[in-house]
Design a binder for these strands. Structure first.
Lengths: 272, 272
DNA sequence: ACGTCGATTTCGAGG
DNA sequence: CCTCGAAGTCGACGT
């Protein structure tokens, strides 16, 4: 049986299913009226309401309301789930140590419990990451500027690992910091930090810093300017050949359409 | 009816329920064998497997596998869901513009569909945030150091807003950057950024920078030292009176136990 | 374990 | 809208 579901179960029946499901490595959903208490890195309290709780066999627990992408409460993988019934409430408790954290979901009423048998061997493939941007630059270093030669990636410095370390046409050390999307002040600071560190490593040499991203905010641009840092506008995916390695800030549009016709009936919901 | 569930429905029946549920502002879960394609800020592809899909009335869609806290694929609130059946597959498509993004979940087989009526008026209360740390300091500025006087919070600078701006006993400008937990190099950079900005605002004056956090990493401590920045060890919650305003790095333990005895039966699952 | 940083980060606040 | 920074961030990879 791939799915087991109880509709409006007694707490005792729900507890039985939950025990079996937890023991059998199943994914579980519980829907009902509950309160949630959390204590650990922070503390939180959530009054009564109807929510969807998801318990994963890896120890994850999620409490979802009807809004937002993030669970209102949760526990990360590696936790231990326990179920108990007392004083007319069904409690799911999730705990872990290091750090010491506990989440209690107390159900006053359970509308539905389901236990799913999950099989999923597929891995996600994703493109458009910073890693893709790095590969793009290693494949064609001139995208940074003519004469740029990459020497190392993730090169360690006292301030942390540098995305791409290399040399320019005049053999000066160059630090390249990559960002897959438009950047703000923090990216400029990060680059500055690496340049400072390498300045100490290469006394007497002028260490250049170049930020590579689709675009920068005004404030970030000002910081870069102030610090004598360079900027190269580049997308992680090379939709169109943009190889001008200069100090121009422009935003990269995200294109790529492929049309597909609709079919038969269709239901729609518009987000809030 | 608070919950409507179909077990192993035909695609047509599932589509009917989904349309009704989407139209009625319900939270929906679908479990079955599916593939997922995403294109937008990045692009991803996920081969066939059994997954739990959650569609929220605010336009959120989540694709969860049996592992991890984060969905393997998703779409944020504000998207539009559409359902269709074609060539033996049921497709849930979620789209938005600004940015242009699309997520397609194609079901080959549906084990279960449920539509939940969610009512949740309760708000989450959370303690232990950076805001709590700030309040703690405003209540007792001497926690920073004797003679410290807060002047403004979120004070704007050319480098961004400063958490707490004030003056020390000698009336020198002080920038305070708050972090609710142990910090790394980025926090030191952030503070440095603000100090630099205020240095320009107060020519001729020495602007001090102080990082307030439970603790710092070695590298962050080195960066602070290098830059002449101060550090005060402080937790967002004042579990024990720690008012020493000095350069000691120590990690803050998270306490607070309240014991509760177990009861009746109990099922357990250990994370991986 | 801890450190460091990326992320389709998400999220909220403010301009 | 955009900018900016927090987050119980999570997660991966390294030491």
């Amino acid at each position: 049986m791939s799915v087991t579901t109880l509709h409006r179960p007694t707490h005792r029946d729900a507890l039985g299913l939950l025990e079996t499901a937890f023991g059998g490595g199943r994914l579980v959903t519980v829907f009902g009226r509950c309160t949630v208490e959390y204590d650990g890195r922070a503390s939180s309290s959530l009054g009564p309401g109807d929510r969807l709780i998801i318990c994963k066999p890896d120890g994850t627990i999620l409490v979802h309301t009807d809004e937002k992408r993030k669970p209102v409460n949760w526990q990360p993988p590696g936790c231990t789930h326990r179920v108990s019934v007392r004083e007319g409430r069904l409690r799911i408790r999730s705990e872990r140590s290091a750090p010491e954290e506990r989440l209690d979901v107390d159900f006053e009423r359970i509308e539905q419990v389901s236990a799913y048998e999950v099989t999923d061997r597929s891995d996600l493939t994703l493109t458009g990451s910073e890693e893709d941007l790095r590969q793009r630059i290693l494949d064609d270093p001139a995208l940074i500027e003519p004469g740029f030669v990459p020497v190392a990636t993730e090169r360690e410095t006292t301030a942390g690992p540098v995305d791409v370390f290399g040399a320019d046409a005049d053999d000066r050390p160059v630090v390249v910091e990559l960002k897959r999307r438009r950047v703000g002040p923090s990216a400029a600071s990060q680059l500055q930090r690496y340049v400072d560190a390498l300045d100490e490593e290469f006394p007497g040499e002028y260490v250049r810093g170049i930020l590579v991203a689709p675009s920068v905010t005004d404030r970030a641009a000002a910081l870069l300017e102030e610090r004598g840092l360079g900027f190269v506008a580049l997308d992680p995916v090379g939709e169109d050949g943009d190889g001008s390695g200069s100090d121009s800030n422009r935003s990269g549009g995200s294109g790529g359409d492929d049309s597909e016709s609709d079919d038969s009936e269709s239901g729609t919901v518009d987000g809030a």
